[in-house]
Design a protein around this nucleic acid. Structure first.
Lengths: 196, 196
DNA sequence: CTGCGATTACCGAATGGTCGGTAGGTCAAG
DNA sequence: CTTGACCTACCGACCATTCGGTAATCGCAG
C-alpha cells in the first residue's frame, strides 16, 4: 500500500481541486463526497479524514477559488492600480476556464436557498466586491458617469453583467461572446459618443 | 375519505404551484417529490399519479412559470407593442414576487449542469428571448445605440443585467434596489446626455 | 331510476439505491 | 510506542420509482 503520497497540505489541496470540479459539474447538493473521493483515489472516509464535513469542504473550496481569482486580478497590475481593463482581462481569462466559471455560477445561485452553507460567503463577497468596484470606477471615470449614474450604482450593474453573461455563455458558448459583450458594456459605462 | 376535491386539471395546477415553491426553496436536485406532496396534502405516490416523473414535473413547472411571465408582459401592452418600459415594469413586478424570482435564478443556474433536465428549456428560452428583445430594442431605439452597440449586443446584456441583479437582490434585498438599478441601465442604453 | 363494469384517484409497501457521518480498526513512518 | 493516514463496516435517513391494491365515481345499459 502506497500511503503518504505527499504532505498533508498537498493532499488537502488535491482534494479541494477535485471538489471544485465536482461542485461545478453537479452543484453542491448534487455532489457527493464519494464522487469527490473517487477522483483523488480515496474512499469517502479518506476525504472526511481531511475535512470534517461536506459544509467545511465547500467553505475551503470557495476560499481557494477566491484566492485564484485574486491572483489573476492583482498580479497583472502589480504595484499599479487595478483598472477596468484589468477587470475585462479577468473576464477574458474566465472565458478560458469554463469549470471555474461554472462552479461559481452554480454555487452562487444555489446559495440563495435558505440555510445554504455558502450563503453568508456570497452575501459578504458581493458586499465587499461592490464597494471595491465602486472605488475602481470612481478612480478611473470620476463621479459623473453617463445617464447620471453614480459609481455605487454602476458597481452592482458591473457584477450583474459579469454573472448574467456567464450564465448565457455557459448555456450557449458559441452564441455568446462573453468578453466582447463585457467590453461593450464597459464602453457604455465610459460614455462613448452618442449617435445622431 | 374525501377524494376528488376538484377536477383533474385544477389538482394538477395545485401540485405545480407547490412544486414551484419547493424548487425555489431547495433547487431541483434538493427538492423531493415527498416534500411537494406534503404541501398539497398528498402522498408521494399521489403526486406521481399526476406526473409520471420528477423530470416531467419540472418541465411542466417551467412551462407554467413562462405563461405567467408572458401574462405580465403582454397584458399591459394589449394590442400595442411591447416597449422597454414594459420590461422595466416586469422587473418591478418581479421585485414583489421573490419566490418566482428565486425559482428562476436557482433553476436556470442549476441547468448549466450536464444532463440537467431543464438545460434544453433554458438554452432555447434564452435564444428566442434574445432575438425577441433585439427587435424590441431596435423598434424603440433604432439601429444605433450609444458606444456603437447593436441591438443584437444589447439584448444579451439586457438579460444579463436582469439575471445578475436578481442574484444580488436575492442575497441582499435591502442593499439592492433592483428596479432602480435596472432603470439606470436602461437610461444608459438609451443614451442619456454625457456629463462634461 | 337502478345496477354494473370501467375508470379515476389515490395510498401502502417495497425495491434498490445513495446520502452524510460515525466507530473502530490496520498499518506504516517516525 | 505514538501518531497520522487511511480503510472496512456500518448507521439511519432519504431518494425516485414501481407494484398492487382499494375506494369512490362515472358512463351507460336496462
Amino acid at each position: 500500500m502506497v500511503r503518504r503520497r505527499g504532505t498533508r497540505e498537498s493532499r488537502r489541496e488535491e482534494i479541494l481541486l477535485a471538489a471544485l470540479d465536482v461542485f461545478a459539474e453537479r452543484g453542491y447538493t448534487g455532489a457527493s463526497i464519494a464522487s469527490i473521493a473517487e477522483r483523488v483515489g480515496l474512499s469517502q472516509q479518506g476525504v472526511l479524514h481531511y475535512f470534517p464535513s461536506k459544509d467545511r469542504l465547500l467553505a475551503e473550496v470557495l476560499r481557494l477559488r477566491d484566492e485564484r481569482n485574486l491572483d489573476v486580478l492583482v498580479l497583472p497590475g502589480e504595484g499599479g492600480a487595478i483598472t477596468l481593463d484589468t477587470v475585462a482581462a479577468l473576464v477574458e481569462y474566465n472565458a478560458q476556464r469554463r469549470g471555474i466559471v461554472q462552479s461559481f455560477t452554480v454555487l452562487s445561485a444555489e446559495s440563495v436557498i435558505e440555510d445554504h452553507p455558502a450563503r453568508d460567503f456570497f452575501k459578504e463577497r458581493y458586499g465587499t466586491s461592490r464597494a471595491w468596484m465602486a472605488e475602481v470606477i470612481r478612480a478611473e471615470l470620476g463621479d459623473k458617469l453617463p445617464a447620471d449614474l453614480t459609481p455605487e450604482q454602476a458597481a452592482p450593474l458591473m457584477f450583474a453583467v459579469m454573472d448574467g453573461l456567464q450564465l448565457q455563455w455557459l448555456l450557449a458558448p458559441d452564441e455568446i461572446d462573453m468578453p466582447g459583450l463585457f467590453r461593450a458594456f464597459l464602453s457604455l459605462l465610459k460614455g462613448a459618443p452618442r449617435p445622431s
